[in-house]
């Protein structure tokens, strides 16, 4: 059979389902979709650690759960250390085959959880850390985080005073830990994403996967466009898809046929509505500069 999608061969997507219907995510939530895809890539046995984030709510309130893997709902800043603890326990029990996976938002990763994450990565504990980055504290109502991009409106960076600092470059921070595997991914490219989770599972040590995860509510985009907006983020090099092995081998895994202007990405979203044309131009330059730095490294290692 040939790919009826033409771009993706969806027959490659594993049929296993670990994320059930009836979850409490908002309509159009990319995070709930991402979870389903991630688990397709990871397979079993997998155990999840979820700190305070939208995913505290999404699986459902007690006694319900949408997740078909064991989950520990952990404290906000403890994803890294909880993972290390669980992994140590499994090692003691002779269950080293269990993949222990953290699933934290940008707040829990870039901000409050970065200390524990950094320590886990520094110890190179054998865990997978996933940050699904929706670029603000969405669960609490769209407050600014270190993952919020420059220029974005949030409820704590109002339109009259939007975020003036660029997004914290968590990828570079994690690369600096020289972990064995880092990847960026998004559910808009499900094949790429699943492949990265599969690969992550096969590697020992701390693995970090940074997912861009659109939040229609917080980004002020229509619910039906959450895949579209993530796709534009990739196509505009706002969120390039790549992987890094041992901080040495850099590989861009999805190379857009044609790089689109960031304006298309920004203008789709209400949170950037106030940006002037001049600001959009500056934005383009910032994105280009960052991508250029990355591109040089892709070149060197390919």
């Amino acid at each position: 059979m040939y790919s009826l999608n033409q771009r993706f061969n969806n027959q490659d997507i594993p049929e296993d389902e670990f994320m059930a219907s009836g979850n409490s995510a908002c309509a159009g939530c990319a995070a709930s979709l991402s979870m389903g895809l991630a688990l397709k890539g990871l397979g079993k046995p997998t155990v999840l650690v979820i700190p305070a984030c939208c995913f505290t709510i999404i699986p459902g309130a007690w006694p319900l759960t949408a997740l078909d893997v064991p989950v520990f709902q952990a404290a906000f800043e403890t994803t890294g250390s909880t993972l290390s603890g669980i992994k140590a326990a499994y090692r003691k029990r002779g269950m080293d085959d269990v993949c222990v996976v953290g699933w934290a938002g940008d707040g829990g990763t870039f901000d409050i959880g970065i200390q524990a994450l950094s320590a886990t990565a520094e110890r190179n504990d054998d865990v997978v850390y996933v940050c699904y980055d929706n670029e603000a504290y969405m669960n609490t109502g769209i407050q600014r985080s270190g993952g919020t991009p420059m220029g974005a409106w949030t409820t704590t960076t109002p339109v009259k005073d939007p975020k003036s600092e660029p997004k914290k470059d968590i990828d570079e921070i994690m690369i600096a830990h020289r972990i064995p595997y880092l990847a960026t991914a998004t559910a808009a490219y499900p094949h790429d994403m699943i492949a990265k989770f599969k690969k992550a599972r096969s590697i020992k040590g701390t693995r970090f996967i940074h997912l861009l995860s659109a939040c229609p509510t917080g980004w002020r985009v229509p619910e039906n466009l959450s895949i579209e907006v993530m796709r534009l983020a990739v196509l505009s090099n706002i969120f390039p898809l790549f992987e890094v092995e041992n901080a040495e081998i850099f590989r861009q895994t999805v190379i857009p046929d044609e790089v689109i202007p960031v304006e298309r990405y920004l203008r789709l979203q209400g949170r950037f509505r106030h940006l002037t044309d001049e600001a959009v131009k500056e934005y383009q330059k910032m994105v280009d500069d960052r991508f250029e730095r990355l591109r040089k490294r892709f070149e060197i290692t390919e």
Binding site: A88, A89, D125
Partner: peptide, 24 residues
């Protein structure tokens, strides 16, 4: 024993909770 040299007491307790959840 498996010794996790954590970066803070907060993480020490978090790791202990995790390990205890892991059944040890």
């Amino acid at each position: 024993l498996d010794y996790i040299r954590v970066e803070s007491e907060h993480s020490a307790m978090a790791a202990c909770i995790g390990a205890s959840m892991g059944g040890v």
